[in-house]
Structure formats: structure tokens, C-alpha cells
Design a protein around this nucleic acid. Structure first.
Length: 481
RNA sequence: CGGGAUGUAGCUCAGUUUGGUAGAGUGCUUGGUUUGGGACCAAGAUGCCGCAGGUUCGAGUCCUGUCAUCCCGACCA
């Protein structure tokens, strides 16, 4: 540890002292966001947006790989259209923003700013789906949506947020269910392989599912402070929306039948998840796959002959190797740069100075553990690539260990409270009878709500943790963002 | 939406009790010296004191309203 540690830590609030303040500090100091004069609407600054662009690029590739096409729907929904599906409108009505005027004139029918686009997709599908030959339609869009949240936080809960929403329509229930599961798996793979973030796949309980869905699946992640964050959802709609929006097609037997639908989405909340899963007291720690800068080169004693030339040469070598690299040749001190790029979460730092050049080497420092390695320039590109992989693996292992240390099996409410009290917030695995009353009771008595019914079930007991009646499922419980 | 707190230079904050010419540190600009964990010297620039009303000869300071941010609840991706 460097002797100047204290000075660096002073830059942000320690996560152990005040996790919420630490989170806000990271958002601002790593230049991810800036606040604006509109509550809950933030500027996503270039560095933050670059993370989102990388998330988009990778996910969009995965969507295309699974046969999806991108489209763009209007941002306005007429009130009458929103109201076609009863559960859907009831679920979203409390948080929609309305447009009532165009210029100076009051609108005949007010327009809702989309909180999600099921209704628009359904209206469109009713127009273009006529035959089994028209199915499936596998659509996705990258847009922003608006939900009039009461309490807002950068990335985690803003009134406008960026997301992708996939909307698909299929000939049969089986196909649609398969799609729902496929996309849940795509999200899981993305979180684990690209964000180094382990997630639990599960099904939402009846009370917690999407407004209008038959079933909602989700991936749940555990943050460093032991609180849960829903990282993505995938819904199966059955033919409920098709009924409400009068979507029908003619099948091979010349019969009129209803198609089955899905929708699925992830949002800029994933950036919040990255911050809270991987960050530390020195700042952000970014997964290499989505880091805007994967490797930063810090020249030492820059004015000395040959240093900057060598640094530039290393930059070119990494660029040619397909690594996102930045050379910082500003005249800030090396120490300043070290701290700066740690705050920004750059996975790998390369130091190159006169002593290194003489020895045909450089120093590679990995962000997640701040380990230094001296590396021969002969194997430079391969070693940087290896270190990026090490950072990813190390981050994943650390996040998984955190989750495992904070996952508690309980068979009574007393045990839940005891675990949360003694070990801190975390995931609770406990059996449940399936009654909403018990779900509510557990939350009321422990503060931990049901997060999901994990697909990977364990049989911890044959009795409900709350009422003691026969258990149906193991539920994952936790306090959530 | 309920309870609490805060808005003054890019950032962190003092000044508000007791109304009287707008402050500090840091950052920024320029020049020089430096450079392996947030360097140093010198000179310089930077403010509708969140916004709108009101009281007053005079408001950063007092009063009313409003907006934003943070924390704790209820609701949510």
C-alpha cells in the first residue's frame, strides 16, 4: 500500500461509511453523470455513455445472433391505446407522464409518454400479422422511456431511462415460452461474461410480475452492500395482449387463432449494477468487456528522451491488437494519473519510464486488486490481453464470493432476522407456501421482499418459512434497490 | 407522496445567529522547475449567493413560495 493512500481515499466517501453517498460520489467523480434542472433526469456524460454504448454493442450482437431485428416505435401513446389491456394500464397509470397540449392547443386525446411499448407493438402486430407465414416477429428497440418515479437515483431509478425492449410474437405458446427463456439466458450470459456479474435466474411471484404478463422471469444480482438489484426481465404474455388488441392470424388448417407474445428488457440500471457490484474505495472498477478504456498508458518522467516515443509505440501495438487504449501524455504527475484512472475504473494500467525502457519492460497494474507485474515488452500485447482476462475473472470471482458469503438459508422468520442482523443484508433462501399473505408477512417482519423463485431450486424444508404450511417453492428474498 | 437535511466560484465549503462593498482551499489560465502513488514557485482569470416574489434606505443574511440534490420510509427497471 502506498503511503499516500489516505489522500486518495479522501476523494470519495468510503463505501463502508456510507454506501449511498459512496455511490453518488462515484457517479459524479468518475464523470458518469451530471444532474440537471429536471428531477430524475440526468446527463449521461461521455464516459458513462461510452459504457452504455459498449453494453449496447455486445447485447445488440447477441440479439441479432438470436434472430432479432431492430425497429423504432413512437414515443407517444394515445390514452385509448394504453387502456386496451386492463392489468397493463392499472400497473403503469400511476407513473405515466401525459402530453396534453400541442403548441397552444389542448389535444383532443391526451398522449402518454411511453413507459414501455407493449401497446404500440400490439397495435402494429395487429396490422401486419395475418398468416402463420408472418410469424414469428422478433423485434427489439433501443429507446428511452419515462416513468414518473417519486424517488430518483442516478442509473438506479430515473424518470427517463435508456433501455432496450424486445417484443416478439409467435404462433404458439411453446415458441413464446422458449423465447422468454432464451432471452433470460442471453441476459444471464451477458451479465456473467461481459459484466463479470453473477446473477440468479428466477420467476417473479404473482404479486411482483409485469402488468399484463402471464409470467415474469428476472435475473437478480447482489450488490456489494448486500442489497438486491433486478438486472433484467423477460416476460411471457400468453395471448392476453393479443386478445386485448385483437391480434389474430390464420394457421395452416385455415383456422383463426391468437398468437403468443413476449417482451424483455435491460436498462441503464446495469451501469448502476456495475458500480455497486465491483466498485471500491478508490472508485469505479469496470469489467474489461464494457470499459471505454481497457488499458491506460502512463508515461513516467515523460520529458526524458525516448519515453514518450516508447509510450506511443506501446499504444499503437495495443491498438493493433484490438485493445481500447489511451495514452495520457498530459503534464499531470504520474501519481495524479494513477488515482484518476483508478477512479474511472480502467481495468489495466501500464507504466513506462526510463528504467523500464532500459530493461525492455513495462509495469502492468490490474485495477481490481492493484497488483503490479513487470512484463517484458517482447510479450507485451499477449500479457495485456491476459491481464484483461485476469481482471474479468478476478472481478467475477470476487462478486460471486460476496454473493455466496451473503446468501443465508433460513427456515423461520426469526432465523431471517438473525441472519440479517448478524451478517448484514443479503439474499435469504427460504421456503414458501405460495400465499401472497405470507410473502407480505415476511417483508413486513424482516424488510426482505421476495426477489424471485430461483429456477435452480433447493429443498431446504417442506414447510413455509412464514406459516408452516406445506412449501411449494424456495424463494430468494432480500432488500432491494 | 410523507419525515429530515442542503443549495454561495468548476469542486469542497466559510460567511446567515446580530442585514452594510463576495471569501478560503482546491481546480482553471500563463510561464518556469518537476515526474515510479493526487509535485513546486510566480503571475492571472473566475460569482444573477438555486429561482421568483416580499420586507428594508440597503438582503447571500429576514419572510413567503418554488425548483433541484441527499438521507429515511411507501412505490418502481
Amino acid at each position: 500500500m502506498a503511503k499516500n493512500d489516505k489522500k486518495m481515499v479522501d476523494a470519495i466517501t468510503s463505501m463502508d461509511v456510507d454506501f449511498a453517498q459512496w455511490y453518488t460520489d462515484i457517479c459524479k467523480k468518475a464523470e458518469l453523470i451530471a444532474y440537471t434542472s429536471v428531477k430524475g433526469c440526468m446527463v449521461i456524460r461521455p464516459y458513462g455513455y461510452a459504457i452504455w454504448e459498449n453494453i449496447q454493442r455486445i447485447l445488440d450482437g447477441m440479439f441479432k445472433e438470436t434472430g432479432h431485428e431492430n425497429v423504432n416505435m413512437p414515443m407517444f401513446i394515445p390514452e385509448s391505446l394504453l387502456q386496451k389491456e386492463k392489468d397493463h394500464v392499472e400497473g403503469f397509470a400511476p407513473e405515466v407522464a401525459w402530453v396534453t397540449h400541442g403548441g397552444h392547443d389542448r389535444l383532443e386525446e391526451k398522449l402518454c409518454v411511453r413507459p414501455t411499448s407493449e401497446t404500440l407493438f400490439c397495435e402494429h402486430y395487429a396490422n401486419i400479422v395475418h398468416s402463420y407465414r408472418d410469424l414469428p416477429k422478433l423485434y427489439n428497440q433501443w429507446v428511452s422511456v419515462v416513468r414518473w418515479e417519486k424517488t430518483t437515483r442516478p442509473f438506479l431509478r430515473s424518470r427517463e431511462f435508456l433501455w432496450q425492449e424486445g417484443h416478439t410474437i409467435h404462433a404458439t405458446a411453446e415458441e413464446a415460452i422458449e423465447e422468454t427463456e432464451r432471452m433470460l439466458n442471453v441476459y444471464t450470459k451477458f451479465c456473467e461474461d461481459s459484466l463479470a456479474m453473477p446473477v440468479v435466474q428466477g420467476k417473479k411471484t404473482e404479486s411482483d410480475k409485469f402488468a399484463g404478463a402471464v409470467s415474469t422471469y428476472a435475473i437478480e444480482a447482489l450488490m456489494h452492500d448486500g442489497k438486491a438489484l433486478q438486472a433484467g426481465t423477460s416476460h411471457y404474455f400468453g395471448d392476453g395482449f393479443a386478445k386485448a388488441f385483437d391480434i389474430e392470424y390464420t394457421d395452416k388448417e385455415n383456422k383463426r387463432v391468437r398468437p403468443h407474445q413476449t417482451s424483455w428488457g435491460v436498462t441503464t440500471r446495469l451501469i448502476g449494477a456495475i458500480i455497486m457490484t465491483h466498485g471500491d474505495d478508490n472508485g469505479l472498477v469496470l469489467p474489461p468487456a464494457v470499459a471505454p478504456i481497457q488499458a491506460v498508458i502512463v508515461p513516467v518522467a515523460m520529458h526524458k528522451e525516448g519515453v514518450l516515443e516508447k509510450a506511443n509505440e506501446l499504444k499503437e501495438r495495443l491498438k493493433n491488437a484490438g485493445i481500447r487504449v489511451k495514452l495520457d501524455d498530459t503534464d499531470n504527475s504520474p501519481g495524479w494519473k494513477f488515482a484518476e484512472y483508478e477512479m474511472k475504473g480502467v481495468p489495466v494500467r501500464i507504466e513506462i519510464g526510463p528504467k523500464d525502457i532500459e530493461a525492455n519492460q513495462c509495469v502492468i497494474v490490474t485495477r481490481h486488486n492493484r497488483e503490479k507485474t513487470f512484463v517484458s515488452l517482447d510479450e507485451f500485447e499477449a500479457m495485456v490481453a491476459q491481464k484483461l482476462q485476469d481482471v474479468h475473472d478476478g472481478m467475477f470471482a470476487k462478486a460471486l464470493a460476496n454473493r455466496e458469503n451473503k446468501t443465508y438459508q433460513c427456515t423461520t422468520i426469526e432465523e431471517i432476522n438473525k441472519a440479517l442482523e448478524e451478517k448484514g443484508d443479503g439474499f435469504i433462501e427460504a421456503m414458501w407456501c405460495g400465499e401472497e399473505a405470507c410473502e407480505d408477512e415476511v417483508k413486513a417482519q424482516t424488510g426482505a421482499g421476495s426477489r424471485c423463485i430461483p429456477l435452480n431450486q433447493k429443498n431446504l424444508s417442506d414447510k413455509c418459512v412464514c406459516c408452516g404450511k406445506p412449501a411449494q417453492h424456495m424463494v430468494l428474498w432480500g432488500k432491494a434497490y
